[in-house]
């Protein structure tokens, strides 16, 4: 089995919009419901490790603890047009399974999904 991060990305401005960047309230509710169903399916299949949505990037804090005293900075690590807005961690047999799940995740949450392998290899 191999673990992957599946992430969804979006502009930080969506957090101020009425429907979080969705076209309408109905679309948002449909997407939430589809995402909930997808998560249930992940759990039933035993692939689910963790999933959550993230709050706005501007609520993030960066800490540099390499010096004598930690340096604390307001804001995300890097300025970008789009930030990670939510993610899943899945544990699946291989990339083919991960890509299939990512397609379902993308259709459910209405966004592109990045699939990135974790460095921890398959358990012996």
């Amino acid at each position: 089995m191999a673990k992957y991060l599946m992430s969804v990305w979006g502009a930080d401005s969506i957090y101020e919009e009425e429907n979080y960047g969705y076209a309408s309230e109905e679309e948002m509710m449909r997407s939430f419901e589809a995402t909930g169903k997808f998560n249930d399916k992940l759990q039933q299949e035993g692939y689910f490790v963790f999933a959550d949505g993230l709050d706005a990037a501007k609520t993030a804090t960066v800490v540099d603890g390499q010096g004598e005293k930690p340096v604390i900075t307001d804001g995300p690590y890097a300025e970008a047009k789009e930030y990670m807005a939510g993610f899943w961690i899945i544990d699946v047999p291989d990339l083919d399974v991960a890509l299939k799940l990512a397609a379902e995740a993308s259709a459910a949450c209405l966004g592109k999904v990045e699939v990135r392998p974790m460095q921890t290899g398959p358990e012996a």
Partner: peptide, 14 residues
């Protein structure tokens, strides 16, 4: 190697 692209013939459906 890193992304675990499988070394196999895809399933019949794919």
């Amino acid at each position: 190697k890193a992304a675990h692209i499988p070394y196999r013939v895809p399933e019949a459906a794919d």
